[in-house]
Design a protein around this nucleic acid. Structure first.
Lengths: 350, 350
DNA sequence: CTTAGTTGTGCACACGTGTGCATTCAACGA
DNA sequence: TCGTTGAATGCACACGTGTGCACAACTAAG
């Protein structure tokens, strides 16, 4: 099996297990291997006649360019690294969905890498470089500056999406968390609710914290007047169950519990709503107003009809890919912080 | 920028933009490039001393094996193709989540490819071969026999998960759809419901059809006795909205509408439930019993507490990866159809 | 017919790695 | 001392492609 060669009659060496290569096409079409390469790449300088002939022979022989060999020669692949941590967060899933299809549409391929263990972040991103990726999108965790310099040195663009960090040589794209928090505050104030709250996961995430701070800043004047009260609420996990248990905990005391809650993200809000409605018998929005963030698909469902702040996953993906493409194309851009506008979506929960 | 070379003092040629390569490590450590290669691969024949020394120099110089070059040499990469179509189906997402982490844990990397357009299935899978993938998992669409022969010829294993086809040279893994359908039938019969129904997407999917047929077979005797009735229900999309609209359509006539519905998948069941409860004011399970299939995360949520048939995504992923690994390892296995056992999960909807 | 310009194609090198085979060297028994 | 053995390492080739440069053929102008 190893090193098995065989001489064919015409003196050309062949490997037994070998699949069809550009040399085969060249021989068959009666041209040089260079010409084949140029034909497959639709090079301008090749005459229409030969191009057509070569491409036909290629199809006939079932030849496909070996992208690995190509990547090796060009020292850059058409892979784009996607750094994420599990497929549990609904909004991230929607974003990844858009991202994957747009990456593919741009002629690249997504190479997914899971960094559930934050300690592995560093080596994972370095591993990605082994594949000569053309670029990387980070949707989870924060790469260290050291990793950044490696990428900078190799001139491989990095885009951080909805992340905190400011990485040298990398673009950072966030949705307008501040404005979103303010919109939520305005709405709750206008609704006449008096005991407001902001629900976020323990320890907080970057995005969540910014949203919460903007919310508090906005209600600060009315807070100072003593017209309303505010409580900071915490759940143990940033998902449905976290929101659910937080609901049981904070809403049990119907007299003093908050009557208007802004949640750091929709998924939490859904759990909170269910706890309030089905476990505690509260009416939403009668007894409790809820506002989420993201506008995930479930928020639109009949069971919830959640009022929320929408960030559009498709636009976020579009900005990301556009940014990557320009940098890959060679545009020398300075590090930039881009902000995606958000939109208030009024439904039934306030 | 192109072809920029420079001679260094010692007469060794260097490229200006070049990153550190195994030759650099070799020179620095005073050994040959072969030795470096063997050290990085933890080859047995290398002495402990040199191995350690080389690995330290490598770390110091920031050397990482170029996987592209490696793949080129070995004519096989450590990439595993994941053929899917968008991240909208909750169970598929859970499966992919498990699959990705297990693939990674086995030392491989997932290369995702989206085939939302079924016509592109063929060329997409051939494109995958360009990357010298070590194996492929298909979770959507059905590859043509022609594609199968290409993979067979290249000796690249393919695993179809929850798919219909029987592809030459490929393993097929399904959950036990038949038993699942029977379990659902048994439960609805036992509940005393009389007007049963099976809800599936228009045209049907392979898995859904099998579930439905098993369901009908099981209730056939009682149907013959005239004790119960059965209706085949159809929705326009295999998701929440599809179930929701089907609910509005089929449950409006409270007298004659089905009072026990088995849904082809949980996601549809959730929409159906919401339409029944919130739009039509039906009580679940009082007026309507609902059974799903998959046991997705949302089915466990307080808002639904859906009774369902569970197929475990993690076990499915485990079987898939185990199968891939053995085939990649060289085991000559015959095409096989593997079946994952299912489990009935009784909650609140029947 | 000569010369300059244009168009199409081939030659040959480089990309960075893995590995079969040869080679070196030290240890050891006779 | 010599021959043998085993361990450790180096040499050299192959993997399949892209591309700068040279070169041939052909056209057009003088």
């Amino acid at each position: 099996m190893s090193g098995d060669r065989q001489k064919s009659g015409n003196g050309v060496e062949k490997k037994a297990h070998q699949v069809v290569t550009s040399a085969d096409v060249a021989r068959e079409a009666g041209v040089s291997r260079s010409t084949v390469s140029r034909c497959m790449a639709d090079d301008e300088r090749i005459s229409e006649a030969t191009r057509k002939r070569v491409q036909e022979t290629a199809a006939q022989l079932g030849y496909h360019v070996n992208k690995i060999a190509s990547s090796m020669n060009r020292r850059k692949s058409d892979l784009i690294g996607l750094v994420t941590s599990g497929l549990t967060d609904p909004f991230r899933i929607e974003f990844l969905d858009c991202l994957i299809s747009q990456i593919q549409q741009s002629g690249y391929r997504p190479l997914v890498i899971d960094v559930s263990d934050p300690d592995q972040m560093g080596i994972s991103m370095l591993n990605l470089l082994q594949y000569q990726v053309a670029g990387v999108v980070v949707t989870s965790g924060s790469p260290s500056p050291e990793v950044g310099t490696h990428y900078l040195k190799r001139n491989v663009p990095v885009v951080l999406v909805n992340r905190a960090g400011r990485l040298e040589g990398a673009d950072v794209i966030n949705c307008d968390n501040v404005h979103g928090g303010e919109l939520a505050a305005d709405m709750l104030l206008k609704s006449g609710k008096k005991r407001l709250g902001f629900l976020n996961v323990r320890g907080g995430t970057y995005s969540g914290n910014v949203r919460g701070e903007a919310f508090v800043s906005r209600i600060a004047p009315r807070l100072a007047d003593g017209e309303i009260s505010f409580t900071s609420l915490v759940c143990d996990s940033a998902d449905y169950d976290g929101g659910f248990h937080a609901g049981l905990k904070y809403l049990a005391d119907r007299e003093n519990a908050p009557d208007g809650i802004f949640c750091a993200k929709d998924h939490i809000a859904l759990g909170l709503m269910d706890a309030a409605r089905f476990e505690l018998g509260l009416k939403v929005p009668g007894d409790l107003a809820v506002i989420g963030f993201d506008d995930i698909a479930a928020a639109r469902q009949g069971a919830y009809q959640l009022t929320t702040v929408r960030q559009r996953a498709d636009q976020l993906a579009e900005m990301t890919v556009e940014r990557l493409r320009r940098r890959i194309g060679g545009d020398a851009l300075g590090d930039e912080r881009l902000v995606l506008p958000v939109e208030f979506i009024r439904r039934q929960t306030v």
